[in-house]
Write a protein that binds this DNA or RNA. Sequence first.
DNA 1: TCCGTATGTGAAACCCTATTCACTATGGGA
DNA 2: TCCCATAGTGAATAGGGTTTCACATACGGA
Lengths: 202, 202
Amino acid sequence: MSESKDRLDSKTRRDEIAEAALRLVNRDGLKKLSLSRLAAEVGVVPSALYRHYPNKDAILDAVLELIRDRLTEHVERVRKEHFSALSRLDALLARHVQMITSQQAIPRILFSEEIVGDAEERRGRLAEVIHEHVMRLASLVAEGQAGGEIRPDVSPESAAVMFLGIVQPAAILWHASGGRFDLTEHARTAWNLYRECLTAKS
Amino acid sequence: MSESKDRLDSKTRRDEIAEAALRLVNRDGLKKLSLSRLAAEVGVVPSALYRHYPNKDAILDAVLELIRDRLTEHVERVRKEHFSALSRLDALLARHVQMITSQQAIPRILFSEEIVGDAEERRGRLAEVIHEHVMRLASLVAEGQAGGEIRPDVSPESAAVMFLGIVQPAAILWHASGGRFDLTEHARTAWNLYRECLTAKS
DNA sequence: TCCGTATGTGAAACCCTATTCACTATGGGA
DNA sequence: TCCCATAGTGAATAGGGTTTCACATACGGA
């Protein structure tokens, strides 16, 4: 019965709610995501949300899932559009920068643990999502090593985490400074440094 | 009058409250920091807090100030204990790793924007605190350049932000994974890579 | 056409929050 | 010794949060 209910429960509405939630979080931060606001954004009354999700935690889970999808999407797109490891990473960096400057809070949310909230069991899911992403990045690096583009003596995983480190503190700085921090410039110089690191002969 | 009140308002109590708040945030995250919990931690009734702070925002400001002090403290200590730029950065990294693994949430808080909350005016203070810290790190780098230890063609500020990038995403991973992520190992390999970056001849 | 189910509504319940206020106790300077 | 500013108390307020429930509505298949 619950199975059939899940199937009937029009999936579009569920998605619409999750996407509205992500939109609100992008705009105002997670702390201000209340069911009243979310309902208003969707155009319904708060209690209506309970027709589609059992509770707020389930909605947050859906948001996390949405974020996971967006991340995979980004990596797959640069995979299709670029064909060397370094240019893929470069494109991914540009994409991240653009995400941040266009008010997309995904990187901020992902690395702030805010989304864990009270639900300790969501911590595991968050770790999984981040870890998956790191592993995708590590694959890019490893492929670059196989192709001789990247020096073979670096740990792909460490390189991947460091890659995130290029953009993530900068994102916070940018946001905290109200856009005064020159994110693009930082990304450019940091990327140059990073690329040299990966390609230098040991 | 307000001046004398500030002076009389036994500073120890104010500090005690701020430190208790930081302790609670370290333990349970910012979202769970309510005045009731804080009062309980201090050993007092919620309304008593208003004898020392005008409102909750003022307490959060004090916490931010406390964090600022801790950060300066750390940099100054490695300045005294080490005398080359690279070993200072190395020691600082170790110190950050230790802070994280010993449940000190300072890096997480600082880079999560959580503390900004509703008070938009605190965003400026947060940016200031982070920027100060970056500038201190940049000074370390610049001194290393002056001493010939670090290649002169990197931007000290970018290098400083990247330094934060070594530890900060790793901190999240570590915390999200419940300690399964090998933070120490990552710090070691990332540091090696980073150091090579800074010392490589261009 | 009609029925049943899924979806939406509006009100209420309940909890936790920050904050205010009148009151009590206490301890250091006159 | 006494007094008064100061710290702490406990109750009350207002507001917002999530969640539940009884009721209305509308739509798709028989």
